[in-house]
């Protein structure tokens, strides 16, 4: 159960730890500001009605990410 997947593939209710961030530029910094660094635990909370974006629990805050961005976050 230690395979690396992207945050996008996390199912509702599942939790995982960040392995690495593939995104670059300002979104990378933004995610880091939110506390999303290697080792941070993330929980997938729920999808929006249209399926995207998805809300995640990151260090006590609920943050919605679009699939383009969450697919760039590797977790295990």
């Amino acid at each position: 159960m230690n395979s690396i997947i992207s945050l996008k593939d996390l199912k509702q209710g599942q939790r995982a730890r960040v392995k690495s961030l593939l995104s670059t530029g300002s979104i990378r910094r933004r995610l880091q500001d939110l506390g999303l660094i290697e080792g941070t635990e993330v929980e997938c909370l729920q999808k929006s009605p249209a399926g995207d974006p998805v809300a995640y629990l990151i260090r006590g805050a609920v943050i919605a990410l679009r699939s383009e961005d969450s697919s760039n976050v590797l977790v295990n």
Binding site: S26, I27, R30, L31, A55, V62, A64, R66, E68, D69
Partner: peptide, 11 residues
């Protein structure tokens, strides 16, 4: 193209 986006859903 649409840029990246983070949206906080406050309590």
């Amino acid at each position: 193209v649409p840029s990246s986006f983070t949206l906080e859903l406050p309590p």
